[in-house]
Design a protein around this nucleic acid. Structure first.
Lengths: 188, 188
DNA sequence: GTCGCATATGTCGCATATGTCGTATAACTA
DNA sequence: TAGTTATACGACATATGCGACATATGCGAC
C-alpha cells in the first residue's frame, strides 16, 4: 500500500479518526487531498517520518521502508561469511546465525524476508525448520533458500516441504545472488 | 497495537492521573506522546512489564494468561517429560523445546516467565543462551533455572552469567518444584 | 516514639487535545 | 446501476497536561 487513509492511520496509532483529520488540518502530519470532497491521503514515507519525529512506535508492518532482511543460517562460519560477502552487493541487510538456537531466536526476532538454510547442522533438522516456518503464522511467508551439500533427492524433499529454492554446496556466487534477488523481487 | 492513556493507567493502578504523568516524565514508565499537545500513550506491553518489574498486581483484564509460562529446554525427551510431570501440579503452562532451534524460536514466541535450561545440548552452548537472554531486552527478565549434569564449578559459572538458579542432574522432584515456584513467586 | 526532612502523591483550575455522534457524500464493490 | 463502506466535518462531551500548592509517605537521627 503506497498511501494511507485517515482510517488506516487511526488504527495504527490507536487514535480516533477525527484526531487524525485534525493533525492533517493543523499540518503536523503531511498529506494531500483527493479532488472529490477532499478525502485525505498520506504517503507512507510521510507517515513513517511523522512517527519517527514524534518518537512514536512504528508498526512492524510499515517498517518495510528499510532494506529487505536476510538471515543466513549455517554452522560453518566460513561458509556463512562467504554467503554474506556474496550478497553484500545487494541492497539487503544480512544477519548470520551459526547455530540452532541463534537461528530460532533470530528468525522470530528479525522476521527476515528471506533465510538461507543449511539442512544439516548439529542438533537441528533443516526439514523440521522448513515445516516450522510454514506452519507458524507470523513468519509463514518467509522466503526459504536451502543451501546444502545434500543430494538432489534431499533438496527436492526440501522444496516439497515448502522451501522456495535450493542450491547445492558448493554454490556459484552469481547463481546465489540471482536466486536471492529473484526471491526478494529486487534488482541484482 | 493497543495503547493506554494516563487515565486508563491511573484507574488500573488506583493512583492519581497526575502521578502517572510524573512516572512518564521521570521515565520509570515508558511511553510516547501524541503530536497534538503531547498527550501520552503507553503500549500495553510496556505497561505490563512495568507492573511486573515493580511487583505490582496485574489486572486480570490485561493478563494475557493467568498462568505463568514455563519453557523446558532439554534435548532428552525423557528428561523434559520428567520435568513436565514434576511441574504439572503447579499452576503453570508448560512447553517443551528439545533442540536449539526450538528453544530459540519458542523463547521469542512464548516469552516465557521461566525457562529450565540444560547447559549441554548438541549444537548449542547453554552459557551463550544465558548471555543472549540477559542482553535481549524483550526477554531480559526471564527467570532462568539451569538443570545440568555438569559440575558445581560450571553451575556457578551459569549463575554468574545471570541464571537465577541451578540444579544438578539428576534432580530431586520436590526441590525442582520448589525452585520453580520460588522463582515464579507462586504457591508450591 | 517523634521530630524533621526530602520526596512522592493528591487536589484544583484552566486551556486545549481528543473522543463521540449524526449526517451528507465520496469511494469502493459487485 | 445499486448497495455497502469509509470519510469529512460540525457541534458537543470528555479527557488530558501542567502549573501551583496541599498532603502523605518513608526514613534516618535522636
Amino acid at each position: 500500500m503506497r498511501t494511507l487513509t485517515t482510517g488506516d492511520i487511526a488504527k495504527f496509532c490507536d487514535v480516533n479518526q477525527r484526531t487524525v483529520i485534525r493533525w492533517l488540518d493543523k499540518g503536523v502530519l503531511k498529506g494531500f487531498k483527493l479532488p472529490g470532497r477532499g478525502n485525505n491521503r498520506v504517503k507512507l514515507d510521510d507517515f513513517v517520518s511523522f512517527l519517527k519525529q514524534n518518537g512514536m512506535p512504528i508498526p512492524e508492518q510499515l517498517a518495510e521502508d528499510a532494506q529487505p532482511k536476510v538471515l543466513v543460517v549455517d554452522d560453518e562460519l566460513a561458509i556463512a561469511n562467504a554467503i554474506r560477502r556474496t550478497l553484500k552487493p545487494l541492497d539487503v541487510s544480512i544477519e548470520i546465525a551459526n547455530g540452532g538456537f541463534e537461528a530460532g531466536s533470530q528468525l522470530m526476532m528479525l522476521k527476515p524476508d528471506l533465510m538461507t538454510l543449511d539442512l544439516s547442522m548439529p542438533g537441528m533438522n533443516g526439514f523440521d525448520v522448513i515445516k516450522f516456518v510454514r506452519s507458524t503464522e507470523e513468519i509463514a511467508n518467509t522466503q526459504i533458500l536451502v543451501i546444502s551439500a545434500l543430494n538432489e533427492i534431499e533438496l527436492g524433499k526440501a522444496i516439497e516441504l515448502g522451501a522456495n529454492g535450493a542450491l547445492s554446496k558448493p554454490f556459484d556466487n552469481d547463481i546465489l545472488r540471482q536466486a536471492v534477488s529473484d526471491l526478494l523481487s529486487i534488482k541484482a
